[in-house]
């Protein structure tokens, strides 16, 4: 299986005494945990507890006010991670294939486009514009980025949102393969999405 082949480097992620807030509102305090290579971590918690904020903090989209996020075995964290947020990052006017071509260029990789389409079952839709895709198909298209560019850390925010049973199975396969190759996946979820998590992290409890 190609896509996320065995990673040369072992990475680990350490979160130290992180405090998260949105505006003036404090979401989490003194959050500390460590994730080793090959782990799949599910982040649980109700709405508005800061799951998305935590993922975005790890993704480097903002600097947390307190606490540290440490990457080991990685030089430039933003190049070692994928972020699949609840926004899919699609342009309605562009075809499925042109999205893949653009992302490949953006992430500086080549040659995985057909494989990515195959892995997420979007072969038949390859030439359709993104605007005609269903919600689940749009989600699958966003998930092709994970296959397109091999990166160690996956940050997934409700990755199964909108996916049908087949899509969920594909996602579970992707995550299992990624972790057994030495990658790390962090997923914010409401209910288990398939693979057995190495650990479950509950925020905002």
């Amino acid at each position: 299986m190609s896509g996320s082949g065995p990673f040369q480097d072992k990475m680990s992620l350490r979160v130290e005494q992180l405090s998260l807030s949105r505006g003036e509102r404090l979401l989490a305090r003194d959050l500390s945990f460590e994730v080793q290579a090959g782990s799949y971590v599910e982040i649980r918690g109700g709405n508005g507890t800061g799951k998305t904020t935590l993922l975005r903090a790890i993704g480097g989209y903002f600097r947390p006010r307190e606490g540290r996020i440490v990457f080991e075995g990685v030089e430039e964290p933003s190049l070692a991670l994928h972020y699949v947020g609840h926004l899919n990052g699609l342009k309605g006017g562009a075809s499925v294939r042109s999205h893949l071509r653009y992302w490949a260029g953006l992430f500086g990789v080549v040659g995985e486009e057909e494989n990515a389409l195959q892995r997420l079952g979007l072969r038949a839709q390859a030439d359709l514009p993104a605007r005609v895709l269903s919600q689940g198909q749009s989600r699958r298209l966003a998930l092709t980025r994970l296959v397109l560019a091999p990166r160690l850390l996956w940050l997934l925010d409700e990755p199964a949102a909108g996916l049908d049973a087949q899509g969920k199975a594909m996602l579970a396969d992707l995550i299992s393969a990624h972790c057994s190759a030495g990658g790390i996946a962090l997923a914010a979820v409401h209910e288990p999405i398939g693979p057995t998590p190495t650990r479950v992290l509950t925020v905002g409890a």
Partner: peptide, 21 residues
Amino acid sequence: ADLEDGSLDQMLLSPAPLEAL
């Protein structure tokens, strides 16, 4: 549009600096 559809998040994960994009 890039902010609203999430494209900006992906641009920030590119090896190219955001200035170049």
